[in-house]
C-alpha cells in the first residue's frame, strides 16, 4: 500500500502532529514502505486463531476500590508548563 502527501497529512492530523506539505512528502515514502512491508501478514495461516493480548493469558487484576495514593497536586503542577490557582492553563476553548 502506498500513501500520498494528502493521506499523510490526514493521518498526521488524527495523530495531532503539526505537519506541513514538505514534511508530509518526506514521510510518505517511509510510511508507504512500512505499510507494504506489513502486508506480509496477509499470507499468515490464522483462520480460527484467537488473538493474543497477553503472553501468559493473564487477566486484569482487581483491587478494592479504596484510596491508595496521597494528594500530590502541588508536586505534579510544579512541572507543568502553565498553571494558575491549582488549574492547568490552556488557550481559551469557549469564546
Amino acid at each position: 500500500m502506498s500513501v500520498d502527501t494528502s493521506e499523510v497529512r490526514r493521518i498526521a492530523h488524527l495523530s495531532r502532529l503539526a505537519m506541513n506539505d514538505d514534511q508530509a512528502r518526506d514521510f510518505a515514502g517511509g510510511l508507504s514502505d512500512i505499510f507494504a512491508f506489513v502486508e506480509q501478514l496477509d499470507g499468515a495461516a490464522i483462520d480460527g486463531v484467537e488473538p493474543m493480548a497477553h503472553p501468559l493469558d493473564a487477566e486484569q487484576r482487581l483491587r478494592p476500590d479504596a484510596v491508595t495514593e496521597s494528594d500530590r497536586r502541588e508536586t505534579f503542577q510544579a512541572i507543568a508548563p502553565a498553571v494558575e490557582g491549582g488549574l492547568y492553563l490552556v488557550p481559551r476553548v469557549i469564546e
Binding site: S15, L17, L31
Partner: peptide, 17 residues
Amino acid sequence: RGEGFGDEVKRRIMVGT
C-alpha cells in the same frame, strides 16, 4: 507534539494511528 517529537517517533505514531 510536532516540535517535541523526532521523526522516527512521529513515523511510528502515524503507523499506529
